[in-house]
Design a protein around this nucleic acid. Structure first.
Lengths: 115, 115
DNA sequence: ACCCATATACGATGTTTGTCGAAAGAGAGG
DNA sequence: CCTCTCTTTCGACAAACATCGTATATGGGT
């Protein structure tokens, strides 16, 4: 009798009023998660498996949870897929300019160093 | 014959061109270090022991190293004291608006939650 | 009903991190 | 020289973290 722990878990999304900027910084201070966020800035919504990152699926799930609990992304179910989008408006309301400034800084750095 | 490990170690300060925004975010994603940076925004330069944080001296040294290696602070010797200052210009050159946006976000949040 | 694709949960592993206490170095002043 | 203050290094520890493999659940298609 297997315990029920399928992927129908509650999918926590904190209110914008609860966002903690330290959690946001921690969430963005990881190359895989930064890649997820940058991808999402270009595309409004993507399925989980379609991100250009090179980690195991279970690791990706972990990173999505970190981003979700920091308030950076929102995820919704659709059939078999889980769609992911940036919570740009909520972040902008709570921390004006923060996400753009950080991601722009990363893009600027990547442009001058990595490629 | 005690090994030489006094506090005259080389005091590494990376060039602005080497700053990594992921390191900066990681360095700022800690309440003690955020307090150090906010204190430094108000005061241009302070001695190590004069920061309003509640950790052991050796822990403080650890946090200073993290901030220094990320390029956020600069430290200089003066007799028995070690003075600490923000590398604001260098950060601004490399990542325009980043530090102000992050610290302002934290101040905004602290103003609405902690006091 | 069966299989496949999508995505998660769990458990384990090795690394990094924040914290401290004890010991030590360096300078200032008696 | 001795002592006091300031700050560091070292060593240790528990907690958090990124990663993975395996097992499981859901839904679509055949």
């Amino acid at each position: 009798m297997p315990r029920s722990h399928g992927r129908r878990a509650t999918l926590v999304h904190p209110d914008a009023a609860e966002f903690d900027v330290l959690d946001v910084l921690h969430a963005l201070a990881d190359p895989t998660r930064m890649t997820i966020v940058r991808t999402l800035r270009a595309d409004p919504e993507r399925a989980c498996g379609t991100f250009p990152v090179d980690v195991a699926p279970s690791t990706l799930t972990h990173h999505f949870r970190v981003l979700r609990e920091a308030g950076i992304i929102r995820q919704r179910e659709d059939g078999n897929r889980r769609w992911t989008a940036l919570r740009f408006e909520d972040l902008e309301d709570r921390f004006p300019g923060l996400l753009d400034t950080i991601v722009d800084a990363y893009d600027h750095q990547a442009g001058s160093v990595t490629a």
